[in-house]
Write a protein that binds this DNA or RNA. Structure first.
Lengths: 348, 348
DNA sequence: ACTTGGTTCTTCATCGATGTAGAAGACGGC
DNA sequence: GCCGTCTTCTACATCGATGAAGAACCAAGT
């Protein structure tokens, strides 16, 4: 007597089994599966029937070994627990699926060593290409950007790396957000999430947009209003907000460099019973779903996440195809459209 | 003259190249890589040096084709944009990584057809096993649960399926939440997220815990206080809350069947300027990170997500090993420990 | 000296698919 | 009636690794 689970009783059918059942050669089965045109309709039907009958699935490993294609792409992001990246991953998975690709997610934790391992082709054999959203890598890692596999970079234009690159309009979006706050009559606009000393990257670009807006309006950026936050989590946003408030600086608005920071800031303001937006208006960046349901609802710059995901997958596919055809296009640089989503946290 | 990106100039080294460089047979290289013990130390070092020199990586496809192992497991969840599943995926990926496994995420969208395709072994050849958190499948799909690959079920004990199963203490957690609300003196406790007519599944179990608590306290469950919500999103939670309020029912507390619903409810209450917890206390389920930063912060039942993820990976590994050894254990059934996390939304 | 057993390494077949090359038949043109 | 072209299908080598089996060597026991 047996009990418990038992596997492997059913041995998966191979192409050979299908061929035998359909009375054709194994290569013909392969041809049917791969859409080779010169096949008699009746033959194709017999093969398809046999495939169905045996519940046959292509062995991806075997195919890959022979053809070099895996049908998988990797998506390397910092952490899925950050809502923006969870939503991005969701979008990328859907876009990839529409193209018949499977996505393998790699979490880098924003860790430099782990990000470098992405570039070193950790999954070279597993995937046909990589969509990579680096966080920690900077100018000093330029040399590492010599990946010999199809690679599409997301997020920041770290530098002109020679790879396809899809990004958001960080500077413009940040400027628009800041301008909007100024349009509300706010004069003392703080920033949360700066990375002082950073030469490249999202933080720098968004702070640049903020500064541009201030300068163009004839104001000056006040260093006392710039709060640092290395990681862009809710917790660090709350901390930074508390520090700003503790510093005694006069503040009537906050531009948080992403929504997680903004939500942390909202939380801190709530703890101190400071009214939003009456006393301090808050705006974020990313427009994650949570922003539509926070209390108060959070205004944010919507960076075109869907567009970014779709474009990245499309570019990667083109790049993968070009690798085979040997007709490489010059690296593309795509900027997604942004939009200001105004909600309660900036009302009035 | 060429411009743009070009790949494939560097051809990845194979085991054969390593063998040649190290002056040994290809099989010895394989043995070194796989930790075969009977190898002279000096030989091992030469091989390792050659591997480093050539930047050699095992071709996973070839290995898989020969050995049947892929080193990958699939995680099938409804949607990553739901914070609970994003956090779960994060935890599973980390746990798998510690075991040297790579995770392939499959989104089912809670769609019955897609969930069935998980069971039909869509990725049979790609992965060594599957961790599956079904949402739509019910008693009528029992027949489909005959997967011939290692499978660990998460979430609800849909039925005694013969597979390893890791779940949370839904009934007990829900009861504890409800009891806590009653302990605050609340008498009119509404529920959000019920699935009327559902025979199995999370909704039913959590409602059962709620009902048990009421009954044991000598109250009766009032159908007017039970609000339906098919999908457990913020939006549906807000809708359901509005409906409850519109219905004119007297309410002094809400037990939302998950945090997304609870956050939607908080949002709706905020829109109507109903004070939480003064007028209505709110408690959720899942303890997602967002709950710690909402306004007000949300009390919730923490279901032991980390423990669930680690246990699931561990069970799956054991099951995969057993498939090879042919020594199947009886299916395990693990209940994670829950904890009540009390925050502002139930204070006082 | 000869067996025994452990260590170290190699040879060979094989996993399941696809690319290459070419065979066989049908058809039309001259 | 022969040739070229198009269509349809097949045989065979091959991708890069691993399992099975065994060869060669050494030390120890009798």
């Amino acid at each position: 007597m047996t009990f418990g689970v038992r596997y492997g009783e059913r041995v998966p059918a191979t192409m050979y089994d299908v061929a035998k059942l359909a009375g054709v050669s194994i290569k013909t089965v392969s041809n049917v599966i791969n859409g080779y045109p010169y096949i008699r309709e009746s033959t194709r039907e017999r093969v398809l029937a046999a495939i169905k009958e045996l519940d046959y699935r292509v062995n991806v490993s075997a195919r890959n070994l022979r053809s070099g294609r895996t049908g998988m792409i990797a998506l390397a992001v910092p952490e899925l627990r950050l809502p923006y990246f969870a939503e991005l991953a969701d979008s990328v998975i859907r876009a990839a699926e529409d193209a018949g690709l499977t996505v393998l997610i790699q979490q880098t934790n924003g860790d430099r060593a782990r990000e470098l391992s992405v570039l070193s082709g950790l999954h070279r054999h597993r995937t046909d290409g990589v969509i990579f959203s680096p966080l920690a890598l900077g100018e000093e890692d330029r040399a590492a950007f010599d990946a010999d596999f199809p690679l599409v970079l997301l997020g920041e234009r770290i530098f002109n790396s020679g790879f396809d690159h899809v990004t958001m309009r960080n500077v413009e979006g940040a400027r628009a957000a800041t301008e909007y706050l100024m349009g509300l009559g706010r004069k003392r606009i703080a920033v949360i999430g700066a990375h002082p000393g950073e030469l490249v990257g999202t933080a720098r670009l968004r702070v640049e947009g903020y500064t541009q807006a201030l300068v163009e309006a004839g104001h000056r950026a006040d260093p006392a209003l710039v709060a640092e936050a290395g990681l862009w989590h809710r917790s660090t946003g709350a901390q930074a907000m508390h520090q700003l408030l503790d510093s005694g600086a006069e503040i009537d608005a906050v531009f948080a460099l992403n929504d997680a920071l903004a939500l942390g800031a909202l939380h801190a303001l709530h703890e101190r019973r400071i009214a939003v937006p009456d006393q301090i208006a808050v705006i974020g960046f990313d427009d994650i779903e949570e922003a539509r349901y926070s209390v108060p609802t959070l205004s944010s710059v919507s960076p075109g996440r869907e567009q970014i995901a779709r474009t990245a997958v499309q570019l990667l596919r083109a790049r993968i195809a070009a690798t085979a055809d040997g007709e490489p296009a010059p690296p593309a640089e795509v900027f997604a459209d942004f939009e200001l989503r105004l909600r309660e946290s900036t009302e009035g």
